[in-house]
Amino acid sequence: MANNNTVLIKIKRQNGPDSKSYWEEFEIPYRPGMNVISALMDIALNPTTRQGKATTPITYESNCLEEVCGSCAMRINGRVRMACSALIDNLEKPVRLEPLSKFPVVRDLTVDRSVLFENLKRVKAWVPIDGSYDLGSGPRLLPEDQEAAYPLSRCISCCCCMEACPQFNESTGFVGAATISQVRLFNTHPTGKALKRERLSALMGDGGIHECGYAQNCVEVCPKDIPLTRSISEVGREVMKQAIGDLFRK
């Protein structure tokens, strides 16, 4: 067991996408206020395992160090969260670090999260303003609408909501809460609304909103406190309205 002046960290490593994973243990000097990313930086200064074996620094993603870039999501003591805001003081020791389990590992703690980007493209999560002529200024947003939209716009694409979701896996191919919430954001935008029908019918495709089992893990783990279950219900209602309306109209 590590003494009070050191911290014990166990890391699940993997050299490449196709290689086998293995565990390594590190014992690093304790510093007040340290977080998981700073601990990984300390390991990189002296990449030696607890047993004294020289090894390679841990590969991981991080950028902002203030929970706004979304790159440092990993499983810490089994649960997904942002590493930069995970203070070592508040974690059970030894600290266990693992890559996200539902995304292909690139190396060590770095995973390929491009599925979220792909999903956002498939629901056209943008405001369509490209054209061959000047569209002029956009419509004004009412303050209330801004207030409803702002929390949704804080998504940092970390994929925590997808990692924790029991329905997000290879057999369902579920789209996940983040994308559904972005559909709500862009469907309520006065210009973004133009693509509302397309977005909703995209979400009716296989792996769409219906795969949600309402376990509500997404809203619990989201580091930006986005009201994801509310988004799922709101978009669920719009999807049903469109599906039933089309029965009569189409």
């Binding site: 292909p104 599925v115 769409g208 795969e211 599906a243």
Partner: peptide, 21 residues
């Protein structure tokens, strides 16, 4: 890969929406 990851949304495809609802 052993772990190929979760497939992206099959936008507008399939009938699972109907059956699930």
């Amino acid at each position: 890969r052993a772990h190929s990851g979760v497939a992206p949304l099959r936008a507008g495809q399939g009938h699972s929406f109907f059956w699930r609802r």
